[in-house]
Write a protein that binds this DNA or RNA. Sequence first.
DNA 1: CGGGGACTTGATGGTTGTCAAGAAATGTGG
DNA 2: CCACATTTCTTGACAACCATCAAGTCCCCG
Lengths: 213, 213
Amino acid sequence: MDTSGTDCLHLSISTWKKGATIYRQGDTGKYWYEVIRGFVRLCHYFGDGRRQVSRFAGRGDAFGFEIGMRQFSAEALTDTGLVCHAPSDDRTRFPAPGEQIGPHPALQRALTSAEDTMRLFSYNNAVDRVAVFLMKFNAYGDCADIIELPMSRQDLADHLGLTMHTVSRSISDLVKRGYFVLERPDRLRIANRAALERLVEFERIGTNVQLVA
Amino acid sequence: MDTSGTDCLHLSISTWKKGATIYRQGDTGKYWYEVIRGFVRLCHYFGDGRRQVSRFAGRGDAFGFEIGMRQFSAEALTDTGLVCHAPSDDRTRFPAPGEQIGPHPALQRALTSAEDTMRLFSYNNAVDRVAVFLMKFNAYGDCADIIELPMSRQDLADHLGLTMHTVSRSISDLVKRGYFVLERPDRLRIANRAALERLVEFERIGTNVQLVA
DNA sequence: CGGGGACTTGATGGTTGTCAAGAAATGTGG
DNA sequence: CCACATTTCTTGACAACCATCAAGTCCCCG
């Protein structure tokens, strides 16, 4: 990919092997990154061994806005390509289609993504949480009905506030109910899209409003 | 509060009564806000009646960065004073002490706050979640050992992914164990700070690092 | 004093975490 | 290419925790 000569923007592109650590929690952050290829796991380690996977960043997502000490570790789930940006740079290399102009689009999208993730926790049951996550994650794939998971069950568990076992059971349950076919542990095919979209439908915003103070 | 004449910055300050709705999910957003007094509840309503309280914004916190349609409703928990900012404005009226310069500090703090909240979900039990929340919320108070809660148990429940009953039981449990004294339902006094800080200690970042790829 | 809303608490059942074992997938060395 | 070792994933049994249902208490306000 030749990035020089197209305009005056200097881009530094780096590639990372699967499993590589891009930066560690506690490091001093100097740049923020944008994913152009692959997937990055952003996670926070606690002193008692717990781990929180705060999000998975794929093509077009940005991360690493912390000023000073990194709050998360950034780890490559697959072979990954990144663009490195200076803190003051608020351009994004891959703006979402139809995106409107606003303050620092990349940072804003990161906030939206975090808020999106938080909404998963409004489901009090494991199966819904897993199903909604899978459907959201589907947006990253090329093929409409295939969900390729670059992360392990434990990663999912640490993201969704569940145990690995419950994640596994939830997926098995969704398969038994005919929503998905498990082609491989890391590869699901959507088998009943209508039923799944019914599950996820309340995720849409603005459609169902209400309520008094 | 006289804001004119100090510099050339034009500020529009608004005040809201307890219970007022500042904006609604689904509205078209034009401004972002900064809290100078009181507390705001930011929540997302789902079509099936669930509600997610994504965060509580207090003095110095900013909210409402969504471009286009609001993803959340903003509701005043107490009588509240706000500064209204244009989207392009990245100044903050009350920068946190010692805060470093970076891209859009207010937006960044909102992201940090969201990520902070997400960490609560790495606790799989209700008592820890409630205790950690209370200790974090303590930072808003004037008095070191008193925690005044402007929100209801139901608000806490919708924030922490629990039911009102479990929140209530958790607080009762923390009181029985001698961590807090319940002076009023909305007013806790810290009775055993050492034990509580032991509970929260793993929240600190960078101190306990770890782990191979 | 009486009413209504918020909070607390008890009893019970369902869901999830824990512990344990087994199956499937992946990697390694012959 | 196959046998074996290792890791990841799945599944079962049980216990712990939380949601639900229900009742009762406290507090605020008229």
